[in-house]
């Protein structure tokens, strides 16, 4: 049963200590607003984080939470959700936490379709350790640990999640609170794992990394809004996205008309189309899709685990320790 909350109900008594101007503030406000709107009993909400700036998030949420260790939040959250599937379990992670040290746990949580919602704050930099390149930093990026430019090829987090066959994958922007709340709501309603990549500005170590998508003079030309069931049009409807031979590309609608423009279906069982859309941009440069790439139902791990327990009890009866102890065969002495 839904409970009536305000945003303040989800604010803890701890002083928020991110750098002034950090995108994390906006995301926190969006999440607290979403939580109040969603009306999940707050004692049933658990936030788990790893290490990094974003990982302080649980301390600021007045729900149950664990600030764990670097990269391991998806594993800990998997244990929480597998043990108590009725809980609403959220992971807050960053590009270093989720994609570098914790990459393995991320892909396996998505593969299993754990009913865990993962918020990946991508600022394309290591902030907490004061400015090294991250697994999403663009090639050539000059940082303290790459004075001659990064020679690492970056991950595209949406492509990676789709490659792991995540059943829900979305992307949003820290500054766009309405869109963020829309994505959070859809992730919450989805049964199974959800990954939301949130482009998050680090105004200290990587300022304006997403300016092409957020600045007033360029955002219309660069934000491709994905809406399920609608043609993918952007830049005032002058441009669209077409898909041919499994590849997505941008077309000039004024020149070619909109028959060629792809109608987005997030529910396709095969992730290939969503993957093609994710390849339109590698890093937030030029026209970049925002919204839900994939929202397709698939068997949820927790349901299957509980079903096995029920069927074992049905087949063998409730466990009886005495009969197990004698199950190797017994003999009597005296």
């Amino acid at each position: 049963m839904a409970t009536t909350y305000t945003r303040q109900d989800f604010q803890s008594d701890q002083e928020v200590r991110w750098c002034p101007g950090c995108g994390d503030y906006t995301i926190l406000a969006s999440v607290q607003t979403f939580m109040a709107d969603a009306g999940i009993p707050k004692e049933d909400v658990v936030f788990v984080s790893g290490i990094g700036c974003a990982a302080r998030f649980p301390y600021y949420m007045n729900v149950y939470g664990m600030h764990s260790i670097h990269g391991r939040a998806p594993a800990i959250a998997s244990g929480i959700s597998a043990a108590r599937p009725e809980l609403s379990v959220w992971v807050v992670s960053g590009d270093g936490d989720a994609l570098s040290i914790g990459g393995n746990h991320l892909i396996h949580a998505l593969r299993r379709n754990m009913n865990v919602k993962i918020l990946l704050f991508n600022n394309q930099i290591y902030g907490l350790t004061k400015g090294q390149y991250s697994p999403t930093s663009e090639p050539g990026k000059r940082t303290k640990s790459s004075p001659m430019g990064s020679i690492d090829h970056p991950f595209n987090p949406v492509s990676l999640a789709l490659g792991a066959e995540a059943s829900f994958v979305a992307r949003t922007l820290d500054m766009d609170r309405a869109h963020t709340i829309e994505m959070l709501t859809a992730a919450h309603e989805h049964q199974g794992s959800a990954l939301i990549e949130i482009y998050q500005n680090c105004n200290v170590f990587n300022d304006k990394a997403f300016a092409e998508l957020t600045a007033k003079d360029s955002r219309d030309a660069n934000q491709i809004r994905l809406v399920h069931g609608e043609k993918i049009l952007f830049d005032g409807g002058t441009k669209g996205v077409a898909i041919e031979e499994g590849r997505a590309f941008i077309v000039d609608v004024e020149q070619y008309g909109d028959d060629i423009v792809h109608t987005h279906d997030a529910t396709l069982p095969d992730p290939s189309t969503a993957f093609a859309l994710s390849r339109l941009a590698h890093g937030p440069h030029g026209p970049t899709p925002i919204g839900i790439f994939r929202d397709a139902p698939r068997a949820v791990y927790e349901d299957a685990l509980d079903a096995q327990i029920s069927s074992a009890i049905e087949a063998k009866g409730e466990g009886d320790l005495a009969s197990v102890l004698g199950s190797n065969g017994t003999w009597t002495v005296g």
């Binding site: 594993a75 244990g79 597998a82």
Partner: peptide, 13 residues
Amino acid sequence: IAAVGVALGASFV
């Protein structure tokens, strides 16, 4: 590492 993390998550709840 995941195994002990999963176990710890279960203990937390």
